[in-house]
Write a protein that binds this DNA or RNA. Sequence first.
DNA 1: GCGTTTTACGTAAACGTTTACGTCTTTCTT
DNA 2: AAGAAAGACGTAAACGTTTACGTAAAACGC
Lengths: 338, 338
Amino acid sequence: MNPTIKDVAKYANVSIATVSRIVNGLPGYSEDTKKKVQEAIEALGYQPNAIARGLINKRTQTIGVLFPEVSGMLSSEVLEGVENAAHDGGFSVIVCNTTSSGKRTVKYLRLLQEKRVDGIIFASEDVKEEYYKIFQEMKVPVLLVSTASSNYDLPFVRVNDFEGAFQATEHLIKKGHKQIGMIGGSKNDPIAGVPRMKGFKEALQKYSLAFSVAHITTNEGYRFQNGKESLPVLLKQLPNMTALFAASDEMAIGAMSAAHQLGIKVPEELSIIGYDNLKIAEMCYPALTTVSQPLKDMGQTAGEILVKLIKGEEKEAKSRYMPFTIVERQSVCDLRDK
Amino acid sequence: MNPTIKDVAKYANVSIATVSRIVNGLPGYSEDTKKKVQEAIEALGYQPNAIARGLINKRTQTIGVLFPEVSGMLSSEVLEGVENAAHDGGFSVIVCNTTSSGKRTVKYLRLLQEKRVDGIIFASEDVKEEYYKIFQEMKVPVLLVSTASSNYDLPFVRVNDFEGAFQATEHLIKKGHKQIGMIGGSKNDPIAGVPRMKGFKEALQKYSLAFSVAHITTNEGYRFQNGKESLPVLLKQLPNMTALFAASDEMAIGAMSAAHQLGIKVPEELSIIGYDNLKIAEMCYPALTTVSQPLKDMGQTAGEILVKLIKGEEKEAKSRYMPFTIVERQSVCDLRDK
DNA sequence: GCGTTTTACGTAAACGTTTACGTCTTTCTT
DNA sequence: AAGAAAGACGTAAACGTTTACGTAAAACGC
C-alpha cells in the first residue's frame, strides 16, 4: 500500500540500489539522477520502511525504558529527559510499566528482546538476577537511572543518596535544630532506603546529636499516605522534635498535611525537609525545602550515554553521580533567629 | 548472533516452516515434533524476531502516543492507562513529546510512519490540517484523548468540558456562594478554554447570578504559576468574591498558594474548586475539591478502543464521553451553614 | 591514444520471518 | 483392499531494505 523503494526506482527509471544510496546519502550517483529520484520520492510520497531497515541493519533505533510506575512524578520527569535525549540521537523510546512486579518486568524484557531494541534504561528498582541474565542475553547496553545494582556491575546515573540525606540533615542542624526525626523508606531498599537513613544517622552523629531507633520511622513505600501516617508515630516516639527529614517529597508533603490536621504549624512548630524536588514541592504550602535531584537531567544524561554506547562512540560506560542541591523554600525555619 | 528460526530448525531436524507453525500455534505437526522443537527452542534460547515478523505481517504491534509534555501530571496519568491497555492487547507504546510544537509533532508523525506503528493516540492538542493529512496517509486508526478536533471527524475519548465546568460552578452555587470568579484558560483554546468558560457563565446565568467579563481571568496556560498570578487580578476585579472555579488543578493550587500568601483563608474566606483531579489535588492543604477527570481510565479506554480498531474487532470508532464526578474535599465551604 | 583509475550505476544475495503450495504418508470409508 | 481424505511435513517466494560485487562508460595520466 505504501510506496516502496521499488516503486520509486521504477518511477525514476533507476535501480533500487541507486535509490537506496540517494536516500542514505551514500556516494555513487550523478546530480541528474539524484534530482530524478528526489522528484519520484516527492511524487509518490515515499517513506523508507524502518522495519525492513531494521531487519538488515540489526538496528531498530529504538530503546526501551522500564519504570515501576509511569505516572509517578519521579518517573515522568526522568522519562521526559530520556525521551528528549533519545529523540535528539535519532531514537524512539518504548515505555514499559513494570508496576514493580518481577513477572511483568521479565515479560517486558522479553518483549524488548523480541522487538530488538538497541538499548535499555532501567529505572528505580533493584536489578534481580533474572533481569541481569536477560540483559546479558540481549547483548545491548543497559543503563540504570536513579538506582544502582548491588550485585552486578552496571553503569548508573544517579545522585549520591547518602550524601543527599547527610546534607539535608546537616541543613536542619545548621538551622539550629537539635531534635530531628526522619520519615524513612524501607530497610530492605538498598537504593533509597538504607543510604538515606545512614546519611541521616551519620549527620546527627557528626554533630553529636542524640540518635536512636526512635528517631526514624520506616515505611513500605515513599508515598503521600506513608508520610501522612508516619508523622503521628514519629511524634509519639520523639515528642519534642522540631524538625524532620522525609526520604521523599511525597512523604514530606504527607507529613505536612498531617501536621496541618493536628494543628501543628509548619515551619514555626515543625520544620520539614524533603527529598526529590518534584514539581509539587513548590506548589504546596508552605513551599517545601528539599534535596533537589535533577530528575530530568538524569534522564537526559542516561539517554545520552546510552545513545553513545549504542553508536559505539563510547566503549565503556562510566557511571555518573549527578549533583544534587538543597533548594530552600518555606518549610524550614531558622531556630537561631529566636 | 541471536539464534534464528533456522538454527532451531537445524537443531530439531525439521524445516523452518514447521518451527514457525509450532511457534505460532498453527496446526500441522505431530506431538512428537512439537516436543522436539520446543526442546530446541529451549536449548538455544530462541526468541522470534519481531522485526522480521513485522516486515511480513505488516503489523508491528506498536502504537504511538503523542503528548504535548510527557512529564505533565495530566499526561503521565493518561499514559499509564494507555500503556496498560496496549500491553494487555499485546502492543508496545512509543512515547512522543511534542512540546506543543507543530514542527516537532510533524517530525514525530513522520517517524511513527516510518516505524509503521499500527495506531496512534493523540493527546491534549488541537489537530491541525498538517497532522490530519499525515493521519490519512498513514491509514492507521487514530484516537484523540482528552481533546477533540474541531475541523476533522476523529474519534475521541474525553469528558464533556462544558458540563464539567457547569456542574463545578453549580456546586459552588449550591453551597450558597453568589460572588463567584473563574480562573480560566485561553480564549483560543477550543478544548479546555472556551467550553469551560462557557459552562461557568451559563451556570451563573441559570441561577440568575451576575456575570461580566470581570468574573473571569484568562491565561496562556494552565499551570501553577498562571493560577498564582491570576488570583490577585481576579480579586481586584471582583473584591467580594467568596468562591472561585479554576480551569485546572494546577491553577487552583496556584490560587490557593497566592491566597495563603495574601493571608486569605481557604476555604473560610475563599472557596476554591479545581478541574482534573490530579494526584496533587489530595496532597495539598486544604485538599482540593475538584472535577475529577478519570485520566487513567481515559487513557485505558482510548488504548482499548485503538487496539480493537487495529485488530479489526471493531469497524467504526465511536467517540466516548467519559463520566466526570465532583470530588468533595476541603477547599470549598458551605456558606449556608452560617 | 592507450592503459588505468574513477564514476555511475545495476544485479543479486542477505536479513528472519510467514505462508501458499506441493508431496508423501497415514487413516478413513465402504 | 482400493480410493479418498486428512495429516505431517518441506520448498520456496515474499516482505522492503542494504550492500558486496560486477560492469560499462567516462575521466585521467603521460
